[in-house]
């Protein structure tokens, strides 16, 4: 059994240098490079909490607001799941990570729980978060298009879309759309 909090501290030391550029004060981000690839005794109890409502994700009425913040990181104090050998690593990404997309060499991840309401710019090579951009309420979908990162803010009223400049990680424009925007193309 592997306690994630202890694990976080150990792994964070390894990645501290890379993380120092942007997130040195935030030890919540960790990477398990060995997860799944070796038998580290991890138990697969992730998702066994009573609040897990997998399979309801596409319920158009059960939007992000229907997910209680109590659901977020329900297993954060437990064990990492053993998801099999094809899963090379886990990244701890608290506060309800939802949609994600690659743009300008980075991975952009919407985080919707605990009023995080941001988009994390994540370096897929070093596997360290680079920056957080404040979006609207309950960001859901993420799209890379026209040289920008677009994020639907599902619980803004009315709904909005944030246009983020991937070079600066800043919101260039917030565009009002209709109620509960989600997917994009």
């Amino acid at each position: 059994m592997l306690n994630m909090n202890k694990y976080s501290i150990v792994v964070f030391a390894v990645f501290f240098a890379a993380a120092a550029a942007s997130c040195e004060d935030d030890p919540e981000y960790t990477v398990d490079k060995d997860a799944g690839g070796s038998d580290s005794g991890k138990s697969a109890d992730a998702g066994t909490d009573d609040n897990n409502d997998a399979g309801e994700g596409a319920d158009a009425d059960a939007d992000a607001d229907a997910d209680t913040d109590a659901d977020a990181d329900a297993d954060a104090d437990g064990d990492l799941p053993d998801a099999g050998p094809a899963v090379e690593a886990f990244v701890v990404m608290p506060n309800g990570p939802r949609g994600l997309a690659f743009a300008s060499g980075y991975l952009w991840i919407a985080r919707a729980f605990m009023d995080a309401d941001n988009v994390t710019k994540f370096d897929p090579e070093s596997r360290v978060p680079f920056d957080d951009t404040t979006a609207g309420h309950r960001p859901a979908g993420v799209l890379a298009a026209a040289g920008a990162v677009w994020v639907t803010n599902n619980s803004d009223d009315p709904g909005t879309v944030s246009r983020i400049n991937p070079a600066t990680a800043e919101v260039d424009e917030t565009i009002e759309v209709e109620t509960k925007p989600w997917g994009m193309t």
Partner: peptide
């Protein structure tokens, strides 16, 4: 979403 993880 629930466990605050990202799988690779």
């Amino acid at each position: 979403l629930t466990n605050g993880l990202m799988y690779l």
